[in-house]
Amino acid sequence: MQLDLSGKRALVTGSTGGIGYAIAKALGELGANVAINGRTQDRVRDAVERLKRETSHAGFIGAPGDVANPDGAARVVAGLPDVDILVNNTGIFEPKPFFEIPDEDWHRFFDTNVMSGVRLSRAYTPGMVERGWGRVVFISSESGVNIPVEMVHYGMTKTAQLAVARGLAETVSGSGVTVNSVLPGPTLSEGVADFMKSMAQGGGTGGEVDLDAAGRAFVAEHRPTSLIGRLATVEEVASMVAYICSPAASATSGAALRVDGGVVRSIV
């Protein structure tokens, strides 16, 4: 199986931590030169240094900029004019009852979760088409299929990503460029770990929090259709992304690929 990405240039947005960091690490381990993106120069620099230590791979560089707004995205593109692999991972989530979500939050979620990927795909994909090879990946969520009642605005953006990805795949059909979405389910990212710790400590438990047990309890209560009965790891999500970015996945395009532990009750 051809997984080698040596010589390929990749940009992973929102990659200073969590799923994005794991994706950047996986692509680097396959030989890609990976640009790390985050809102601040300090966080990007720290992530680059950590990745180089953890992988002994020198091909990590910084690409700071807030891709949730046009100016920030433009700065990233100006500093990194061409990439072969674009992973649109930047995203935010926040539980909030529907009737309490103001217009500003709808716009903020759409700009961050959807328009960031639209802007960068618009900037980078034509070059991939010209070169006859490229990979564009949108990190969506099982929440784009099963809209979570506790954060409808988040689910809406994840559904929108699926539509954009499929439409872009149709646009570049036959070019050698593939466009896909990856749908993680509940995943033990840094943000989720912090959330579970705060919930446990707020309940008066104190001390160390057993994240595996807390994750299993969360899945049992909130995602009972899960077939694995636990939170996925960021590395498990990254493995899927690394595969579809590789030459081995050249016949996979326009797909919505789930890494949701079977939460979505569908056979296709």
Rank of each mutant, 00 (worst) to 15 (best):
Y124L: 07
T125L: 12
G174H: 08
A160I: 04
T157K: 03
N89R: 02
E94G: 14
F98P: 06
P95D: 15
A74Y: 02
V76C: 08
D84T: 00
F98E: 10
L80E: 12
N146P: 01
L86P: 00
H153P: 00
V172C: 10
G144D: 03
V177S: 14
E142A: 03
G62M: 08
D103W: 11
R122Y: 15
V179L: 06
I92K: 14
Y154C: 06
P102A: 08
G155F: 04
V137C: 10
G65F: 07
T187Q: 14
M128G: 00
M151G: 00
V164Q: 05
V76E: 11
E130N: 05
G62C: 07
F60D: 04
T112F: 12
L86K: 01
S141F: 07
G176K: 09
S189P: 00
P81H: 13
L162A: 01
Q161G: 03
P184I: 04
G174W: 07
T178M: 05
D82L: 03
V118E: 03
V114I: 06
P184F: 12
N113Q: 13
G155V: 01
V114P: 00
S181C: 15
R166G: 00
N180E: 13
G185Q: 00
G65C: 11
D71Y: 03
R122L: 14
S173D: 14
F110E: 13
S173T: 10
T125Q: 09
F99R: 03
P126G: 04
V149T: 13
H107W: 06
V177M: 13
G132Y: 08
P95L: 11
S189H: 02
Y154L: 09
A78L: 07
V149E: 15
Y124W: 07
L80W: 10
E130W: 00
K96V: 14
I92V: 15
Y154V: 08
Q161M: 15
G65L: 09
R108H: 12
V114A: 02
F93T: 09
F110V: 13
G134N: 07
H57C: 11
S143K: 01
T112L: 12
G91L: 08
S143W: 09
R75I: 01
D82M: 02
V87S: 08
R75S: 13
E94K: 12
P184D: 10
P184W: 09
V179F: 07
V76K: 09
F109K: 03
T178N: 01
V87W: 08
D111Q: 12
K158E: 08
G176C: 08
V179N: 02
D111C: 04
G65T: 05
H107C: 04
N146I: 07
P148Y: 13
L86S: 01
T90Q: 13
L162M: 14
H57T: 08
G79A: 07
A63W: 03
G117A: 09
G167Y: 08
V145T: 15
P95T: 13
R108S: 14
S121L: 03
G59H: 11
T125E: 09
E150D: 15
A165D: 10
G132F: 11
G144E: 05
N180R: 07
R135Y: 14
I61V: 14
Y154R: 10
P95Y: 12
A165H: 09
